[in-house]
Design a binder for these strands. Structure first.
Lengths: 139, 139
DNA sequence: TAAGATTGAACCATCAATCTTG
DNA sequence: CAAGATTGATGGTTCAATCTTA
């Protein structure tokens, strides 16, 4: 199997693993990523900040935040300085969901790491870096 | 960056590259995969065959094939033996779309291969295999 | 009953067009 | 006009429930 297909296959398996880990905590993988980002930005983030960090289209963020606010995972901050900007922070419920999810996530990363030999991991890091840079530069 | 995130990032970049390559041919990446499979199965494939090969839920295939038939990319085969089974083949239009798409796809694989050193590729192959097997066995 | 496929609801993602605010 | 965000259309994905045929 070509390495490109191997990467896509592995990513799909990782995506499923993410769903498996996060769903007991009432989160999707993307929603966990949002909370994870907000855990590092207590003052809040704008929708455009999140779109850039998640590498997704800004139009995507609108619905994502709407659902998460509806679930009570996020709080919206009043922004009197520039009323175009929509700033969100995580709520108490969002923090409560994130904590055990993050614990399981870290645990899973360690477990996955343990199946790799140091040599293969180093090679993979180099190869993935080379490929990703080639794809971005080719754009 | 953790290798798991590197894989997901690389896969997303590859997905975008796939869209870029296939959209001029009027195809999405998944639609190309369907035609690619049908190119190896001239007698046709059942919806459940495709779901298994694409590693996708059967319910997904219904809409996918419906859109492709509507586009004229596929033909439906009458199956008198077992009327539950829905067998499709590629149409002339499907073949015409696949040929240049496949040429561009192969060209892209060669280009991506060329940015990898043999050592890093070998390491990546091993690492991805180790990870994917661990994820599947863990299920 | 079981196999094969479909439907409906929910989520994620993109793009083009639009709206609001600066 | 430009920046930030939203809306609507389209497509991919999953899951649970259902339908049809064997």
């Amino acid at each position: 199997m070509h390495i490109v297909l191997q990467i896509v296959t592995a990513a799909r398996a990782l995506e499923k693993e993410g769903k498996r880990i996060f769903s007991p905590h009432g989160l999707t993988p993307v929603q966990f990523n949002v909370l994870n980002l907000l855990s590092k930005h207590p003052a809040g983030m704008r929708a455009s900040d999140l779109a850039r960090a998640l590498i997704v289209d800004p139009s995507n963020v609108t619905g994502l935040l709407k659902r998460m606010k509806h679930e009570g995972l996020l709080n919206e901050i009043e922004n009197t300085a520039d009323r175009r900007q929509h700033v969100v922070t995580w709520s108490a419920k969002g923090q409560a969901a994130w904590k055990p999810a993050h614990r399981d996530y870290e645990r899973s990363l360690v477990a996955l790491d343990s199946v790799l030999t140091p040599v293969s991991r180093k090679g993979a890091e180099n190869a993935l870096k080379q490929l990703t840079e080639a794809l971005i530069l080719g754009k």
